[in-house]
Simulated assay, not measured.
Amino acid sequence: MNTEDMTRRIATGEGFIAALDQSGGSTPKALTGYGVADGSWSGEDEMFALIHAMRERIIESPCFGNGKVVGAILFEKTMDGTAGGKPVPERLKERGIVPFLKVDKGLEDEANGVQLMKPMPDLENLLARARAKGVFGTKMRSVIKANDPVGITQVVRQQFAEGARILAAGLVPILEPEYDIKAADRAEGEKVLLNAILEGLDALPEGQQVMLKLSIPVEANLYKPLIEHPAVLRVVALSGGYSTDEACEKLGQNQGMIASFSRGLLQDLRHYQSDEEFDSTLGKAIDQIHLASVR
């Protein structure tokens, strides 16, 4: 797939984006969820080898390439690794899956009810490597924990500022201002977030497009103006801690929003499953998330 093919696949593909981008801080939890006992690895290299083996098993599963997964978000080490004997981005594209790269370096401490992204001084070098490997776009995450208009504005402006760097490098950014699903004031705060994002979209130069990854809103179809905005290639939803059933039920109420789940995709996979059991379990999750995305 060339850039034009990948743009079309993301814009119109009937499917969802798999989030396979657990990084250093979240990898131990992901491995525990996969049934690997805590302490089964000695050092960071062994830990990342274990998580990469899980990701390669997912990528090579027959059901992962059945057309229902239109994209996959990768951690940097996964991008640099191989699957099926080929570089991961190349292998994904062979399977009809558009590769994205997580580029943020984690979160700052909370202030004004939000956690901004840490600085990314080496972003341009990382983007150049990603583009050389055939990556289509990026993803970066901030977190909103309270309806503080000052904090929400800071989060959105930072996302668009970093997004401008990514667009300048020839990649498509997924802006992810996640709203904590446990926040008591989320319903009102999401309306503040919506207006802040619309302001950022309206300020983009003509012809530029970004993607958005957002928590499934409390008010169904709240983000319809974003889905319909000409500067938005696609709006995707994070599972945010919901179970697969909960996330799919809520997503199905939001027309035009597709999934980009991590926990919702991986929660029932275990390293000790036979290939048949693994593929069956993954296939059921893919079918369920795909249905919620196209409903």
Score class of each variant (00 low, 15 high):
residue 94 E to I: 07
residue 94 E to K: 00
residue 95 R to T: 11
residue 98 V to T: 15
residue 98 V to F: 06
residue 98 V to I: 10
residue 99 P to I: 03
residue 101 L to H: 01
residue 101 L to S: 06
residue 102 K to G: 07
residue 102 K to S: 04
residue 103 V to Y: 00
residue 106 G to A: 05
residue 107 L to T: 12
residue 111 A to K: 14
residue 115 Q to P: 11
residue 117 M to R: 07
residue 118 K to D: 12
residue 121 P to M: 02
residue 121 P to S: 03
residue 122 D to H: 14
residue 122 D to V: 09
residue 123 L to W: 05
residue 123 L to T: 06
residue 126 L to F: 10
residue 126 L to C: 10
residue 126 L to E: 15
residue 129 R to L: 12
residue 129 R to H: 14
residue 130 A to P: 10
residue 131 R to A: 12
residue 133 K to H: 13
residue 135 V to P: 03
residue 135 V to D: 07
residue 135 V to M: 01
residue 136 F to E: 10
residue 136 F to D: 11
residue 138 T to K: 00
residue 141 R to I: 09
residue 141 R to D: 09
residue 141 R to Y: 09
residue 142 S to E: 10
residue 143 V to G: 07
residue 143 V to A: 11
residue 143 V to T: 14
residue 145 K to N: 13
residue 147 N to R: 03
residue 147 N to K: 08
residue 148 D to T: 08
residue 148 D to I: 04
residue 151 G to F: 05
residue 151 G to E: 04
residue 158 Q to G: 06
residue 158 Q to N: 08
residue 160 F to Y: 00
residue 161 A to Q: 15
residue 161 A to I: 10
residue 161 A to T: 15
residue 163 G to T: 01
residue 165 R to P: 10
residue 166 I to W: 07
residue 166 I to Y: 11
residue 166 I to P: 12
residue 167 L to M: 13
residue 167 L to T: 08
residue 167 L to P: 07
residue 169 A to F: 08
residue 169 A to H: 05
residue 170 G to C: 05
residue 171 L to R: 03
residue 175 L to Y: 09
residue 178 E to F: 09
residue 178 E to C: 10
residue 179 Y to W: 06
residue 179 Y to G: 01
residue 179 Y to P: 03
residue 182 K to E: 15
residue 184 A to D: 15
residue 185 D to L: 04
residue 187 A to E: 15
residue 187 A to D: 15
residue 187 A to M: 09
residue 190 E to P: 08
residue 190 E to K: 04
residue 193 L to A: 02
residue 193 L to M: 07
residue 194 L to T: 07
residue 195 N to R: 13
residue 196 A to D: 12
residue 196 A to H: 04
residue 196 A to G: 10
residue 196 A to V: 08
residue 199 E to M: 11
residue 200 G to T: 03
residue 201 L to H: 03
residue 201 L to V: 06
residue 202 D to C: 10
residue 202 D to Q: 14
residue 203 A to W: 08
residue 204 L to C: 06
residue 206 E to M: 13
residue 209 Q to S: 11
residue 210 V to F: 06
residue 211 M to C: 11
residue 212 L to S: 02
residue 213 K to T: 06
residue 213 K to D: 02
residue 215 S to G: 13
residue 218 V to G: 11
residue 218 V to F: 14
residue 219 E to Q: 13
residue 220 A to V: 09
residue 221 N to W: 12
residue 222 L to W: 04
residue 222 L to K: 00
residue 222 L to F: 07
residue 222 L to H: 02
residue 224 K to I: 13
residue 224 K to Q: 15
residue 224 K to V: 14
residue 225 P to W: 02
residue 225 P to A: 04
residue 226 L to I: 01
residue 226 L to Q: 07
residue 229 H to I: 01
residue 231 A to M: 10
